[in-house]
Design a binder for these strands. Sequence first.
DNA 1: TTGCTCCTCACGTCACGTGAGGTGGC
DNA 2: TTGCTCCTCACGTCACGTGAGGTGGC
Lengths: 287, 287
Amino acid sequence: MSRSEPVLSIGELAERTGLAVPTLRMWEDRHGFPRPHRLPSGHRRYSARDGELVAQVVRERAAGLSLGAAIARVQRTADHQEPSIFAGLGQQWPALAPHRLSKHAMLAISRAIEDECCARSGPAVLIGAFQRERFYRRSERRWVELARTADGALVFADFPRRRSPRGRPVELPIPPSASLRREWAVICDAPRSAACLTGWELPGQASTPDARRAFEARWTTHPEMVRSATRLALDLAAEQSPQAAAECAAVLDDVPTHQADEPERTVALTNRIVAHLDALSHRPRRR
Amino acid sequence: MSRSEPVLSIGELAERTGLAVPTLRMWEDRHGFPRPHRLPSGHRRYSARDGELVAQVVRERAAGLSLGAAIARVQRTADHQEPSIFAGLGQQWPALAPHRLSKHAMLAISRAIEDECCARSGPAVLIGAFQRERFYRRSERRWVELARTADGALVFADFPRRRSPRGRPVELPIPPSASLRREWAVICDAPRSAACLTGWELPGQASTPDARRAFEARWTTHPEMVRSATRLALDLAAEQSPQAAAECAAVLDDVPTHQADEPERTVALTNRIVAHLDALSHRPRRR
DNA sequence: TTGCTCCTCACGTCACGTGAGGTGGC
DNA sequence: TTGCTCCTCACGTCACGTGAGGTGGC
Protein backbone atom coordinates (compact mmCIF):
# COMPACT_ATOMS: atom_id res chain seq x y z
CA MET A 1 0.00 0.00 0.00
CA SER A 2 1.45 3.32 -1.00
CA ARG A 3 2.00 6.08 1.50
CA SER A 4 0.62 9.02 -0.39
CA GLU A 5 1.93 12.55 0.04
CA PRO A 6 0.63 14.68 2.89
CA VAL A 7 -1.21 17.43 1.05
CA LEU A 8 -4.63 17.82 2.67
CA SER A 9 -5.30 20.56 5.19
CA ILE A 10 -7.46 19.73 8.17
CA GLY A 11 -10.35 21.58 6.55
CA GLU A 12 -10.04 19.52 3.37
CA LEU A 13 -9.89 16.27 5.33
CA ALA A 14 -12.94 17.34 7.33
CA GLU A 15 -14.88 17.96 4.15
CA ARG A 16 -13.82 14.66 2.62
CA THR A 17 -14.79 12.62 5.68
CA GLY A 18 -17.85 14.55 6.82
CA LEU A 19 -16.35 15.25 10.24
CA ALA A 20 -15.98 18.62 11.96
CA VAL A 21 -12.51 20.16 12.16
CA PRO A 22 -12.45 20.21 15.99
CA THR A 23 -13.43 16.54 15.99
CA LEU A 24 -10.37 15.61 13.96
CA ARG A 25 -8.16 17.56 16.35
CA MET A 26 -9.87 15.85 19.28
CA TRP A 27 -9.22 12.38 17.82
CA GLU A 28 -5.57 13.25 17.44
CA ASP A 29 -5.36 14.66 20.99
CA ARG A 30 -7.08 11.79 22.69
CA HIS A 31 -6.19 8.81 20.49
CA GLY A 32 -3.16 9.85 18.44
CA PHE A 33 -5.07 9.31 15.21
CA PRO A 34 -4.90 10.53 12.54
CA ARG A 35 -1.35 11.78 13.02
CA PRO A 36 -0.55 14.30 10.26
CA HIS A 37 2.67 15.80 9.05
CA ARG A 38 3.27 19.34 10.26
CA LEU A 39 4.38 22.39 8.29
CA PRO A 40 7.08 24.46 10.01
CA SER A 41 4.27 26.77 11.11
CA GLY A 42 2.53 23.88 12.85
CA HIS A 43 -0.30 23.48 10.33
CA ARG A 44 -1.39 19.86 9.77
CA ARG A 45 -1.09 18.11 6.43
CA TYR A 46 -2.84 14.76 5.81
CA SER A 47 -2.37 12.17 3.07
CA ALA A 48 -5.15 10.68 0.96
CA ARG A 49 -4.53 7.45 2.81
CA ASP A 50 -5.24 9.20 6.10
CA GLY A 51 -8.58 10.12 4.58
CA GLU A 52 -9.33 6.49 3.75
CA LEU A 53 -8.46 5.35 7.25
CA VAL A 54 -10.58 8.06 8.84
CA ALA A 55 -13.51 7.05 6.61
CA GLN A 56 -12.97 3.48 7.72
CA VAL A 57 -13.12 4.56 11.39
CA VAL A 58 -16.35 6.43 10.69
CA ARG A 59 -17.83 3.22 9.29
CA GLU A 60 -16.73 1.14 12.26
CA ARG A 61 -18.27 3.69 14.61
CA ALA A 62 -21.52 3.55 12.67
CA ALA A 63 -21.45 -0.20 13.30
CA GLY A 64 -21.40 0.50 17.04
CA LEU A 65 -17.73 0.49 17.99
CA SER A 66 -16.39 3.00 20.49
CA LEU A 67 -13.97 5.52 19.03
CA GLY A 68 -10.96 3.93 20.69
CA ALA A 69 -11.90 0.43 19.56
CA ALA A 70 -12.63 1.61 16.01
CA ILE A 71 -9.27 3.34 15.72
CA ALA A 72 -7.44 0.33 17.15
CA ARG A 73 -9.16 -2.03 14.73
CA VAL A 74 -8.52 0.14 11.68
CA GLN A 75 -4.87 0.61 12.56
CA ARG A 76 -4.45 -3.11 13.10
CA THR A 77 -5.88 -4.07 9.70
CA ALA A 78 -4.14 -1.16 7.96
CA ASP A 79 -0.79 -2.51 9.10
CA HIS A 80 -1.13 -5.66 7.07
CA GLN A 81 -3.46 -4.60 4.34
CA GLU A 82 -2.88 -6.55 1.20
CA PRO A 83 -2.09 -4.68 -2.01
CA SER A 84 -5.24 -6.02 -3.59
CA ILE A 85 -8.53 -4.34 -4.45
CA PHE A 86 -10.49 -7.52 -3.83
CA ALA A 87 -8.92 -8.22 -0.45
CA GLY A 88 -8.93 -4.61 0.68
CA LEU A 89 -12.61 -4.25 -0.14
CA GLY A 90 -13.35 -7.31 1.95
CA GLN A 91 -11.39 -5.91 4.89
CA GLN A 92 -13.15 -2.55 4.74
CA TRP A 93 -16.67 -3.93 4.19
CA PRO A 94 -17.08 -7.25 5.95
CA ALA A 95 -20.71 -7.41 4.87
CA LEU A 96 -19.66 -7.50 1.21
CA ALA A 97 -19.38 -11.26 0.90
CA PRO A 98 -17.36 -12.93 -1.85
CA HIS A 99 -19.20 -15.07 -4.37
CA ARG A 100 -17.96 -17.84 -6.59
CA LEU A 101 -18.58 -16.84 -10.19
CA SER A 102 -17.86 -18.46 -13.51
CA LYS A 103 -15.81 -16.64 -16.08
CA HIS A 104 -19.00 -16.10 -18.05
CA ALA A 105 -20.60 -14.39 -15.08
CA MET A 106 -17.53 -12.21 -14.57
CA LEU A 107 -17.65 -11.18 -18.21
CA ALA A 108 -21.36 -10.45 -18.12
CA ILE A 109 -21.11 -8.30 -14.99
CA SER A 110 -18.10 -6.46 -16.39
CA ARG A 111 -19.90 -5.65 -19.62
CA ALA A 112 -22.99 -4.56 -17.74
CA ILE A 113 -20.97 -2.15 -15.61
CA GLU A 114 -19.34 -0.78 -18.73
CA ASP A 115 -22.77 -0.31 -20.34
CA GLU A 116 -24.10 1.54 -17.31
CA CYS A 117 -21.00 3.68 -17.34
CA CYS A 118 -21.61 4.60 -20.98
CA ALA A 119 -25.16 5.62 -20.16
CA ARG A 120 -24.11 7.92 -17.35
CA SER A 121 -23.64 11.66 -17.22
CA GLY A 122 -21.44 13.79 -14.99
CA PRO A 123 -17.89 13.31 -13.75
CA ALA A 124 -16.53 9.78 -13.69
CA VAL A 125 -13.46 7.79 -12.82
CA LEU A 126 -13.01 4.49 -14.54
CA ILE A 127 -10.57 1.76 -13.60
CA GLY A 128 -9.88 -1.68 -15.00
CA ALA A 129 -7.52 -4.50 -14.06
CA PHE A 130 -7.00 -7.07 -16.80
CA GLN A 131 -4.30 -9.48 -15.66
CA ARG A 132 -3.00 -9.89 -19.21
CA GLU A 133 -2.45 -7.16 -21.77
CA ARG A 134 -4.11 -9.28 -24.45
CA PHE A 135 -7.33 -9.35 -22.44
CA TYR A 136 -7.31 -5.57 -22.40
CA ARG A 137 -6.52 -5.26 -26.09
CA ARG A 138 -9.63 -7.30 -26.83
CA SER A 139 -11.76 -4.79 -24.90
CA GLU A 140 -9.71 -1.78 -25.80
CA ARG A 141 -12.19 -0.27 -28.28
CA ARG A 142 -14.88 -0.23 -25.62
CA TRP A 143 -12.55 1.27 -23.07
CA VAL A 144 -11.32 3.99 -25.38
CA GLU A 145 -14.94 4.88 -25.94
CA LEU A 146 -15.57 4.97 -22.18
CA ALA A 147 -12.45 7.00 -21.52
CA ARG A 148 -13.50 9.68 -24.01
CA THR A 149 -16.23 10.92 -21.70
CA ALA A 150 -14.64 10.06 -18.35
CA ASP A 151 -12.50 12.48 -16.42
CA GLY A 152 -10.02 9.81 -15.46
CA ALA A 153 -9.44 6.31 -16.80
CA LEU A 154 -6.76 3.87 -15.70
CA VAL A 155 -6.04 0.33 -16.79
CA PHE A 156 -3.77 -2.17 -15.06
CA ALA A 157 -2.26 -5.11 -16.94
CA ASP A 158 1.13 -6.69 -17.62
CA PHE A 159 2.00 -3.87 -20.01
CA PRO A 160 5.69 -3.66 -20.93
CA ARG A 161 5.78 0.03 -19.95
CA ARG A 162 3.65 2.89 -18.74
CA ARG A 163 1.82 4.91 -21.38
CA SER A 164 -0.58 7.84 -21.23
CA PRO A 165 -2.10 7.98 -24.73
CA ARG A 166 -4.10 11.15 -25.22
CA GLY A 167 -7.85 10.63 -24.79
CA ARG A 168 -7.38 6.97 -23.88
CA PRO A 169 -7.00 5.09 -20.62
CA VAL A 170 -3.63 5.43 -18.92
CA GLU A 171 -1.87 2.06 -19.15
CA LEU A 172 -0.18 1.03 -15.92
CA PRO A 173 2.12 -2.01 -15.81
CA ILE A 174 1.74 -4.35 -12.85
CA PRO A 175 4.99 -5.62 -11.33
CA PRO A 176 5.27 -9.38 -11.88
CA SER A 177 5.20 -10.13 -8.15
CA ALA A 178 2.14 -7.98 -7.35
CA SER A 179 -0.97 -9.81 -6.30
CA LEU A 180 -2.91 -7.36 -8.47
CA ARG A 181 -1.61 -9.47 -11.33
CA ARG A 182 -4.15 -12.14 -10.47
CA GLU A 183 -7.04 -9.70 -10.18
CA TRP A 184 -9.91 -8.84 -12.43
CA ALA A 185 -11.50 -5.47 -11.70
CA VAL A 186 -13.95 -3.09 -13.32
CA ILE A 187 -14.74 0.06 -11.38
CA CYS A 188 -17.00 2.87 -12.47
CA ASP A 189 -17.12 5.67 -9.91
CA ALA A 190 -19.66 8.20 -11.11
CA PRO A 191 -22.80 9.82 -9.72
CA ARG A 192 -25.82 7.51 -10.08
CA SER A 193 -23.77 4.98 -12.05
CA ALA A 194 -21.39 3.71 -9.40
CA ALA A 195 -20.60 0.02 -9.69
CA CYS A 196 -17.62 -2.24 -9.30
CA LEU A 197 -16.62 -5.84 -9.73
CA THR A 198 -13.41 -7.25 -8.31
CA GLY A 199 -12.25 -10.80 -8.07
CA TRP A 200 -9.49 -13.25 -8.64
CA GLU A 201 -9.12 -16.60 -10.13
CA LEU A 202 -9.29 -19.46 -7.69
CA PRO A 203 -5.95 -21.25 -7.55
CA GLY A 204 -5.39 -24.79 -8.71
CA GLN A 205 -7.18 -24.53 -12.05
CA ALA A 206 -4.19 -24.93 -14.32
CA SER A 207 -5.86 -27.85 -16.08
CA THR A 208 -9.36 -26.32 -16.21
CA PRO A 209 -10.59 -25.27 -19.66
CA ASP A 210 -10.59 -21.51 -20.03
CA ALA A 211 -14.35 -21.15 -20.30
CA ARG A 212 -14.96 -22.98 -17.02
CA ARG A 213 -12.46 -21.16 -14.86
CA ALA A 214 -13.95 -20.09 -11.52
CA PHE A 215 -13.46 -16.75 -9.77
CA GLU A 216 -14.01 -15.49 -6.28
CA ALA A 217 -15.56 -12.05 -6.60
CA ARG A 218 -17.25 -9.15 -4.87
CA TRP A 219 -19.46 -6.72 -6.71
CA THR A 220 -21.67 -3.87 -5.64
CA THR A 221 -23.48 -0.73 -6.69
CA HIS A 222 -23.22 0.85 -3.23
CA PRO A 223 -21.60 4.26 -3.87
CA GLU A 224 -19.51 4.21 -0.70
CA MET A 225 -18.22 0.71 -1.33
CA VAL A 226 -17.39 1.62 -4.91
CA ARG A 227 -15.51 4.63 -3.58
CA SER A 228 -13.46 2.35 -1.34
CA ALA A 229 -12.55 0.23 -4.35
CA THR A 230 -11.59 3.34 -6.29
CA ARG A 231 -9.35 4.60 -3.49
CA LEU A 232 -7.69 1.21 -3.13
CA ALA A 233 -7.03 1.13 -6.87
CA LEU A 234 -5.69 4.70 -6.87
CA ASP A 235 -3.32 3.82 -4.04
CA LEU A 236 -1.95 1.05 -6.23
CA ALA A 237 -1.86 3.33 -9.27
CA ALA A 238 0.13 5.94 -7.34
CA GLU A 239 3.06 3.54 -7.20
CA GLN A 240 3.28 3.60 -11.00
CA SER A 241 2.05 7.10 -11.73
CA PRO A 242 1.48 9.48 -8.83
CA GLN A 243 0.28 12.14 -11.25
CA ALA A 244 -2.43 10.03 -12.91
CA ALA A 245 -3.61 8.86 -9.51
CA ALA A 246 -3.76 12.40 -8.17
CA GLU A 247 -5.74 13.60 -11.20
CA CYS A 248 -8.33 10.88 -10.67
CA ALA A 249 -8.46 11.59 -6.95
CA ALA A 250 -9.24 15.22 -7.71
CA VAL A 251 -12.21 14.17 -9.82
CA LEU A 252 -13.64 12.15 -6.92
CA ASP A 253 -14.20 15.33 -4.91
CA ASP A 254 -16.98 16.14 -7.40
CA VAL A 255 -18.61 12.71 -7.21
CA PRO A 256 -20.82 12.47 -4.14
CA THR A 257 -21.18 9.13 -2.35
CA HIS A 258 -23.61 10.09 0.36
CA GLN A 259 -26.70 9.56 -1.73
CA ALA A 260 -28.61 6.39 -1.03
CA ASP A 261 -28.15 3.50 -3.40
CA GLU A 262 -31.15 3.34 -5.67
CA PRO A 263 -32.74 -0.10 -6.02
CA GLU A 264 -33.99 0.50 -9.54
CA ARG A 265 -30.41 1.12 -10.61
CA THR A 266 -29.38 -2.31 -9.39
CA VAL A 267 -32.33 -3.81 -11.20
CA ALA A 268 -31.25 -2.09 -14.41
CA LEU A 269 -27.74 -3.45 -13.97
CA THR A 270 -29.06 -6.93 -13.29
CA ASN A 271 -31.07 -6.80 -16.48
CA ARG A 272 -27.97 -5.94 -18.42
CA ILE A 273 -26.09 -8.79 -16.75
CA VAL A 274 -28.80 -11.26 -17.66
CA ALA A 275 -28.81 -10.08 -21.25
CA HIS A 276 -25.05 -10.48 -21.53
CA LEU A 277 -25.12 -13.92 -19.95
CA ASP A 278 -27.77 -14.95 -22.41
CA ALA A 279 -25.70 -13.72 -25.33
CA LEU A 280 -22.55 -15.40 -24.02
CA SER A 281 -24.26 -18.74 -23.66
CA HIS A 282 -25.14 -18.67 -27.35
CA ARG A 283 -21.77 -17.65 -28.72
CA PRO A 284 -19.08 -18.16 -26.11
CA ARG A 285 -16.13 -15.80 -26.52
CA ARG A 286 -12.83 -15.39 -24.74
CA ARG A 287 -12.00 -12.30 -22.78
CA MET B 1 -30.85 -24.63 19.22
CA SER B 2 -32.87 -25.69 22.16
CA ARG B 3 -34.87 -23.20 24.20
CA SER B 4 -33.97 -24.32 27.69
CA GLU B 5 -36.31 -23.92 30.62
CA PRO B 6 -36.45 -20.60 32.45
CA VAL B 7 -35.06 -21.55 35.85
CA LEU B 8 -32.43 -18.98 36.77
CA SER B 9 -33.23 -16.11 39.11
CA ILE B 10 -31.71 -12.74 38.32
CA GLY B 11 -29.18 -13.25 41.08
CA GLU B 12 -28.08 -16.58 39.60
CA LEU B 13 -27.78 -15.08 36.14
CA ALA B 14 -25.76 -12.20 37.56
CA GLU B 15 -23.34 -14.58 39.20
CA ARG B 16 -23.00 -16.68 36.07
CA THR B 17 -22.28 -13.70 33.83
CA GLY B 18 -20.30 -11.53 36.22
CA LEU B 19 -22.74 -8.63 35.90
CA ALA B 20 -24.48 -6.77 38.72
CA VAL B 21 -28.16 -7.43 39.30
CA PRO B 22 -29.21 -3.81 38.65
CA THR B 23 -27.24 -3.89 35.41
CA LEU B 24 -29.30 -6.80 34.11
CA ARG B 25 -32.50 -4.95 35.00
CA MET B 26 -31.17 -1.86 33.29
CA TRP B 27 -30.40 -3.78 30.08
CA GLU B 28 -33.94 -5.09 30.06
CA ASP B 29 -35.42 -1.64 30.72
CA ARG B 30 -33.43 0.20 28.09
CA HIS B 31 -32.86 -2.46 25.45
CA GLY B 32 -35.44 -5.19 26.04
CA PHE B 33 -32.71 -7.76 26.58
CA PRO B 34 -32.56 -10.24 28.16
CA ARG B 35 -36.32 -10.67 28.40
CA PRO B 36 -37.10 -13.29 31.08
CA HIS B 37 -40.20 -15.21 31.91
CA ARG B 38 -42.05 -13.90 34.95
CA LEU B 39 -43.47 -15.78 37.91
CA PRO B 40 -46.99 -14.72 38.92
CA SER B 41 -45.32 -12.63 41.62
CA GLY B 42 -43.31 -10.74 39.00
CA HIS B 43 -39.95 -12.37 39.74
CA ARG B 44 -37.77 -12.95 36.68
CA ARG B 45 -36.71 -16.41 35.53
CA TYR B 46 -34.01 -16.83 32.86
CA SER B 47 -33.01 -19.83 30.77
CA ALA B 48 -29.49 -21.19 30.43
CA ARG B 49 -29.57 -19.94 26.87
CA ASP B 50 -30.25 -16.41 28.13
CA GLY B 51 -27.05 -16.81 30.11
CA GLU B 52 -25.11 -17.74 26.98
CA LEU B 53 -26.45 -14.78 25.07
CA VAL B 54 -25.67 -12.37 27.89
CA ALA B 55 -22.13 -13.75 28.07
CA GLN B 56 -21.88 -13.20 24.32
CA VAL B 57 -22.95 -9.57 24.74
CA VAL B 58 -20.32 -9.11 27.45
CA ARG B 59 -17.68 -10.35 25.02
CA GLU B 60 -18.85 -8.04 22.23
CA ARG B 61 -18.74 -5.11 24.63
CA ALA B 62 -15.21 -6.03 25.64
CA ALA B 63 -14.35 -5.83 21.95
CA GLY B 64 -15.53 -2.20 21.94
CA LEU B 65 -19.17 -2.37 20.85
CA SER B 66 -21.75 -0.11 22.45
CA LEU B 67 -24.35 -1.95 24.51
CA GLY B 68 -27.09 -1.40 21.96
CA ALA B 69 -24.93 -2.57 19.05
CA ALA B 70 -23.70 -5.61 20.98
CA ILE B 71 -27.24 -6.68 21.85
CA ALA B 72 -28.42 -6.18 18.29
CA ARG B 73 -25.55 -8.23 16.90
CA VAL B 74 -25.98 -11.09 19.34
CA GLN B 75 -29.72 -11.27 18.73
CA ARG B 76 -29.17 -11.26 14.98
CA THR B 77 -26.73 -14.17 15.03
CA ALA B 78 -28.74 -16.04 17.68
CA ASP B 79 -31.72 -16.06 15.37
CA HIS B 80 -30.00 -18.25 12.83
CA GLN B 81 -27.48 -20.07 14.94
CA GLU B 82 -26.67 -23.47 13.56
CA PRO B 83 -27.14 -26.50 15.77
CA SER B 84 -23.45 -27.27 15.56
CA ILE B 85 -20.66 -26.94 18.10
CA PHE B 86 -18.12 -26.15 15.42
CA ALA B 87 -20.22 -23.47 13.75
CA GLY B 88 -21.51 -21.97 16.99
CA LEU B 89 -17.99 -21.65 18.36
CA GLY B 90 -16.96 -19.79 15.23
CA GLN B 91 -19.89 -17.40 15.54
CA GLN B 92 -19.19 -16.67 19.18
CA TRP B 93 -15.41 -16.33 18.83
CA PRO B 94 -14.53 -14.90 15.43
CA ALA B 95 -10.85 -14.89 16.36
CA LEU B 96 -10.86 -18.68 16.70
CA ALA B 97 -9.99 -19.49 13.12
CA PRO B 98 -10.72 -22.88 11.55
CA HIS B 99 -7.78 -24.99 10.42
CA ARG B 100 -7.59 -27.76 7.90
CA LEU B 101 -6.40 -30.88 9.67
CA SER B 102 -5.76 -34.43 8.57
CA LYS B 103 -7.53 -37.25 10.31
CA HIS B 104 -4.24 -38.13 11.94
CA ALA B 105 -3.97 -34.66 13.41
CA MET B 106 -7.57 -34.82 14.65
CA LEU B 107 -6.83 -38.12 16.35
CA ALA B 108 -3.62 -36.89 17.91
CA ILE B 109 -5.24 -33.75 19.31
CA SER B 110 -8.19 -35.73 20.62
CA ARG B 111 -5.93 -38.18 22.40
CA ALA B 112 -3.85 -35.36 23.83
CA ILE B 113 -6.93 -33.67 25.25
CA GLU B 114 -8.05 -36.95 26.75
CA ASP B 115 -4.60 -37.41 28.31
CA GLU B 116 -4.65 -33.93 29.83
CA CYS B 117 -8.10 -34.62 31.14
CA CYS B 118 -6.87 -37.78 32.85
CA ALA B 119 -4.08 -35.84 34.50
CA ARG B 120 -6.39 -33.21 35.93
CA SER B 121 -7.93 -32.81 39.36
CA GLY B 122 -11.13 -31.12 40.45
CA PRO B 123 -14.60 -31.05 38.92
CA ALA B 124 -14.89 -31.79 35.21
CA VAL B 125 -17.40 -32.09 32.41
CA LEU B 126 -16.43 -34.24 29.49
CA ILE B 127 -18.18 -34.36 26.13
CA GLY B 128 -17.51 -36.29 22.95
CA ALA B 129 -19.13 -36.40 19.52
CA PHE B 130 -18.21 -39.42 17.47
CA GLN B 131 -20.33 -39.41 14.31
CA ARG B 132 -20.50 -43.22 14.27
CA GLU B 133 -21.12 -45.48 17.23
CA ARG B 134 -18.31 -47.77 16.12
CA PHE B 135 -15.82 -44.92 16.43
CA TYR B 136 -16.92 -44.49 20.03
CA ARG B 137 -16.79 -48.19 20.83
CA ARG B 138 -13.16 -48.19 19.75
CA SER B 139 -12.39 -45.48 22.29
CA GLU B 140 -14.89 -46.60 24.86
CA ARG B 141 -12.39 -48.04 27.32
CA ARG B 142 -10.57 -44.72 27.51
CA TRP B 143 -13.82 -42.81 27.93
CA VAL B 144 -15.13 -45.06 30.67
CA GLU B 145 -11.87 -44.42 32.46
CA LEU B 146 -12.27 -40.68 31.98
CA ALA B 147 -15.90 -40.71 33.07
CA ARG B 148 -15.04 -42.46 36.32
CA THR B 149 -13.44 -39.33 37.70
CA ALA B 150 -15.52 -36.73 35.90
CA ASP B 151 -18.69 -35.24 37.35
CA GLY B 152 -20.46 -35.36 34.02
CA ALA B 153 -19.68 -37.21 30.79
CA LEU B 154 -21.78 -37.21 27.62
CA VAL B 155 -21.17 -38.88 24.28
CA PHE B 156 -23.02 -38.18 21.03
CA ALA B 157 -23.10 -40.74 18.23
CA ASP B 158 -25.63 -42.54 16.07
CA PHE B 159 -26.62 -44.75 18.99
CA PRO B 160 -29.86 -46.68 18.47
CA ARG B 161 -31.22 -45.33 21.79
CA ARG B 162 -30.34 -43.24 24.79
CA ARG B 163 -28.56 -45.00 27.65
CA SER B 164 -27.20 -43.82 31.00
CA PRO B 165 -24.96 -46.66 32.14
CA ARG B 166 -23.85 -46.19 35.74
CA GLY B 167 -20.34 -44.78 36.04
CA ARG B 168 -19.98 -44.44 32.27
CA PRO B 169 -20.64 -41.66 29.78
CA VAL B 170 -24.28 -41.01 28.98
CA GLU B 171 -24.91 -42.13 25.39
CA LEU B 172 -27.00 -39.67 23.39
CA PRO B 173 -28.31 -40.59 19.93
CA ILE B 174 -28.04 -37.94 17.23
CA PRO B 175 -31.09 -37.59 14.96
CA PRO B 176 -30.17 -38.62 11.40
CA SER B 177 -30.83 -35.14 10.02
CA ALA B 178 -28.79 -33.23 12.63
CA SER B 179 -25.64 -31.52 11.44
CA LEU B 180 -24.01 -32.75 14.63
CA ARG B 181 -23.90 -36.09 12.86
CA ARG B 182 -21.01 -34.81 10.77
CA GLU B 183 -19.09 -33.43 13.72
CA TRP B 184 -16.11 -34.62 15.64
CA ALA B 185 -15.77 -33.11 19.11
CA VAL B 186 -13.76 -33.65 22.25
CA ILE B 187 -14.40 -31.23 25.08
CA CYS B 188 -12.82 -31.27 28.52
CA ASP B 189 -14.13 -28.48 30.73
CA ALA B 190 -12.19 -28.58 33.95
CA PRO B 191 -10.08 -26.15 35.98
CA ARG B 192 -6.52 -25.90 34.58
CA SER B 193 -7.23 -28.66 32.06
CA ALA B 194 -9.76 -26.98 29.77
CA ALA B 195 -9.39 -27.90 26.12
CA CYS B 196 -11.60 -28.65 23.19
CA LEU B 197 -11.41 -29.77 19.59
CA THR B 198 -14.36 -29.53 17.23
CA GLY B 199 -14.47 -30.05 13.52
CA TRP B 200 -16.22 -31.67 10.65
CA GLU B 201 -15.22 -33.57 7.64
CA LEU B 202 -14.88 -31.53 4.50
CA PRO B 203 -17.51 -32.57 1.96
CA GLY B 204 -16.76 -34.26 -1.33
CA GLN B 205 -14.34 -36.86 0.00
CA ALA B 206 -16.41 -39.95 -0.66
CA SER B 207 -13.62 -41.46 -2.73
CA THR B 208 -10.79 -40.39 -0.43
CA PRO B 209 -9.07 -43.18 1.49
CA ASP B 210 -10.01 -43.08 5.15
CA ALA B 211 -6.55 -42.21 6.44
CA ARG B 212 -6.31 -39.15 4.22
CA ARG B 213 -9.67 -37.58 4.98
CA ALA B 214 -9.43 -33.86 5.72
CA PHE B 215 -11.26 -31.98 8.46
CA GLU B 216 -11.97 -28.36 9.14
CA ALA B 217 -11.44 -27.81 12.84
CA ARG B 218 -11.11 -25.35 15.67
CA TRP B 219 -9.28 -26.19 18.87
CA THR B 220 -8.32 -24.19 21.90
CA THR B 221 -7.26 -24.31 25.52
CA HIS B 222 -8.81 -20.92 26.33
CA PRO B 223 -11.12 -21.62 29.31
CA GLU B 224 -13.84 -19.23 28.17
CA MET B 225 -13.90 -20.60 24.64
CA VAL B 226 -14.01 -24.13 25.98
CA ARG B 227 -16.93 -23.08 28.15
CA SER B 228 -18.76 -21.81 25.07
CA ALA B 229 -18.25 -25.16 23.40
CA THR B 230 -19.53 -26.94 26.49
CA ARG B 231 -22.65 -24.79 26.62
CA LEU B 232 -23.34 -25.32 22.94
CA ALA B 233 -22.99 -29.07 23.41
CA LEU B 234 -25.21 -29.06 26.49
CA ASP B 235 -27.88 -27.18 24.55
CA LEU B 236 -27.84 -29.96 22.00
CA ALA B 237 -27.79 -32.60 24.71
CA ALA B 238 -30.82 -31.07 26.37
CA GLU B 239 -32.90 -32.07 23.36
CA GLN B 240 -32.17 -35.73 24.10
CA SER B 241 -31.83 -35.66 27.85
CA PRO B 242 -32.69 -32.47 29.73
CA GLN B 243 -31.73 -34.11 32.98
CA ALA B 244 -28.23 -35.15 31.94
CA ALA B 245 -27.64 -31.70 30.46
CA ALA B 246 -28.83 -30.00 33.64
CA GLU B 247 -26.57 -32.13 35.80
CA CYS B 248 -23.55 -31.20 33.73
CA ALA B 249 -24.57 -27.54 33.75
CA ALA B 250 -24.69 -27.61 37.52
CA VAL B 251 -21.09 -28.87 37.62
CA LEU B 252 -19.93 -25.93 35.50
CA ASP B 253 -20.80 -23.50 38.26
CA ASP B 254 -17.85 -24.95 40.19
CA VAL B 255 -15.41 -24.70 37.29
CA PRO B 256 -14.07 -21.15 37.00
CA THR B 257 -13.26 -19.74 33.56
CA HIS B 258 -11.95 -16.33 34.53
CA GLN B 259 -8.40 -17.45 35.17
CA ALA B 260 -5.91 -16.62 32.46
CA ASP B 261 -4.94 -19.34 30.02
CA GLU B 262 -1.52 -20.62 31.02
CA PRO B 263 0.98 -20.89 28.18
CA GLU B 264 2.85 -23.81 29.72
CA ARG B 265 -0.37 -25.77 29.66
CA THR B 266 -0.65 -25.32 25.91
CA VAL B 267 2.96 -26.35 25.53
CA ALA B 268 2.27 -29.50 27.52
CA LEU B 269 -0.71 -30.27 25.31
CA THR B 270 1.33 -29.64 22.18
CA ASN B 271 3.96 -32.08 23.38
CA ARG B 272 1.32 -34.72 23.83
CA ILE B 273 -0.03 -34.02 20.34
CA VAL B 274 3.39 -34.38 18.81
CA ALA B 275 3.96 -37.65 20.63
CA HIS B 276 0.65 -39.04 19.39
CA LEU B 277 1.29 -37.93 15.84
CA ASP B 278 4.66 -39.61 15.95
CA ALA B 279 3.11 -42.84 17.18
CA LEU B 280 0.35 -42.70 14.57
CA SER B 281 2.80 -42.24 11.73
CA HIS B 282 4.51 -45.47 12.70
CA ARG B 283 1.46 -47.64 13.09
CA PRO B 284 -1.58 -46.00 11.50
CA ARG B 285 -4.87 -46.97 13.12
CA ARG B 286 -8.50 -46.21 12.40
CA ARG B 287 -10.62 -44.26 14.76
C1' DT C 1 -7.52 41.81 4.36
C1' DT C 2 -10.20 37.41 4.36
C1' DG C 3 -10.60 32.96 5.71
C1' DC C 4 -8.05 29.27 7.66
C1' DT C 5 -5.42 27.33 11.26
C1' DC C 6 -3.21 27.17 15.75
C1' DC C 7 -4.02 26.34 20.80
C1' DT C 8 -6.45 25.97 25.54
C1' DC C 9 -10.29 25.72 28.49
C1' DA C 10 -14.61 24.55 29.25
C1' DC C 11 -19.12 22.97 28.78
C1' DG C 12 -23.06 19.95 27.02
C1' DT C 13 -25.01 15.65 26.00
C1' DC C 14 -25.47 10.95 26.05
C1' DA C 15 -24.52 6.07 27.39
C1' DC C 16 -23.99 3.34 31.05
C1' DG C 17 -23.85 1.86 35.54
C1' DT C 18 -24.91 2.14 40.58
C1' DG C 19 -26.97 3.44 44.80
C1' DA C 20 -30.87 4.68 47.99
C1' DG C 21 -35.14 3.65 49.78
C1' DG C 22 -39.28 1.44 50.65
C1' DT C 23 -42.06 -3.22 49.36
C1' DG C 24 -43.59 -7.88 49.03
C1' DG C 25 -42.65 -12.81 47.77
C1' DC C 26 -39.34 -17.05 48.39
C1' DT D 1 -36.96 -14.28 59.95
C1' DT D 2 -33.23 -13.89 56.47
C1' DG D 3 -31.94 -12.91 52.11
C1' DC D 4 -33.77 -12.13 47.66
C1' DT D 5 -36.55 -9.65 44.54
C1' DC D 6 -39.68 -6.04 43.05
C1' DC D 7 -39.95 -1.05 41.57
C1' DT D 8 -38.78 4.12 41.01
C1' DC D 9 -35.90 8.00 41.20
C1' DA D 10 -31.76 9.84 41.05
C1' DC D 11 -27.02 10.54 40.74
C1' DG D 12 -22.07 9.71 39.13
C1' DT D 13 -18.78 8.87 35.71
C1' DC D 14 -17.02 8.60 31.33
C1' DA D 15 -16.83 9.12 26.21
C1' DC D 16 -17.42 12.18 22.85
C1' DG D 17 -18.27 16.28 20.60
C1' DT D 18 -18.61 21.39 20.26
C1' DG D 19 -18.13 26.14 21.27
C1' DA D 20 -15.68 30.42 22.87
C1' DG D 21 -11.86 33.22 22.66
C1' DG D 22 -7.61 35.02 21.44
C1' DT D 23 -3.37 34.15 17.93
C1' DG D 24 -0.54 33.85 13.94
C1' DG D 25 0.33 31.89 9.22
C1' DC D 26 -1.63 31.10 4.29
